[in-house]
């Protein structure tokens, strides 16, 4: 069969989507089975795992309770107001604290997950938490060290330049923004502190 040089499709006659059948059929099952180890092993939709999506699980995966025992210590634990009650099990890592904790608690207590305010407050809480933790780290025995904590040394040890030049990757354009995301708030805070301090000094002098 001759082909159109521009499209690679069979020449002559209407193209595939305009007619009822594909003009270029897929490879045969025998051909695929010979080339791909395991080809078609899960051909039967009904014999695939997690099928059907909703399927009563009689073995309960080994659970031996109708309702799990309640984990102690849940008093005051923040929860989505879309939950009718605190879940019987919950994570206890990094409890709410300080200003970021108050912002996050407001997000949970006031807004459902359907409200953008819920998520934006949580994101705001994340930033406050990060700034506070960075500031506190300088009062601790182990201050934050952007150089080691960003792993940027691997730009030298793991072929940073070559890795970027080897492929025609587009993400290198975006990666130049990463230092801005990391250092930007610090620069902005420093500038703000300088301007604020200068304004204060001028106000006191005048």
């Amino acid at each position: 069969m001759s082909t159109d040089q521009q499209t690679g499709r069979p020449a002559g006659g209407p193209a595939t989507p305009h007619v009822a059948h594909r003009r270029q059929p897929p490879p045969s099952a025998d051909e695929l089975r010979a080339r791909i180890p395991g080809w078609g092993a899960d051909l039967d939709h009904a014999d695939r795992p997690s099928f059907p999506k909703l399927d009563w699980q009689a073995d309960r995966y080994g659970a031996h309770w109708d309702y799990p025992a309640q984990q102690p210590g849940g008093e005051g634990r923040e929860r989505s107001i879309e939950h009718a009650q605190l879940t019987p099990v919950f994570g206890t890592a990094q409890p709410l604290h300080g200003v970021s904790g108050a912002v996050r608690r407001l997000a949970y207590a006031r807004y459902s997950e359907g409200r953008l305010a819920h998520w934006m407050l949580l994101i705001a809480g994340d930033r406050i938490d990060a700034w506070g933790a960075h500031a506190r780290s300088f009062l601790s025995g182990r201050p934050d060290q952007p150089f080691t904590e960003t792993g940027v040394v691997t730009e030298v040890t793991h072929h940073g330049l070559a890795s970027r030049l080897r492929s025609s990757r587009t993400d290198t354009r975006h990666q130049v923004l990463d230092p801005v995301v990391v250092a930007g708030p610090w620069v902005a805070a420093a500038v703000g502190a300088f301007l604020g301090g200068r304004a204060l000094v001028r106000a006191v002098r005048s």
Partner: peptide, 19 residues
Amino acid sequence: FCSRGLVSNCHNVNPNATA
């Protein structure tokens, strides 16, 4: 959800979100 196989959507382990 777990009873019906949706174990990645369990309702008893994540107090912070239902989604």
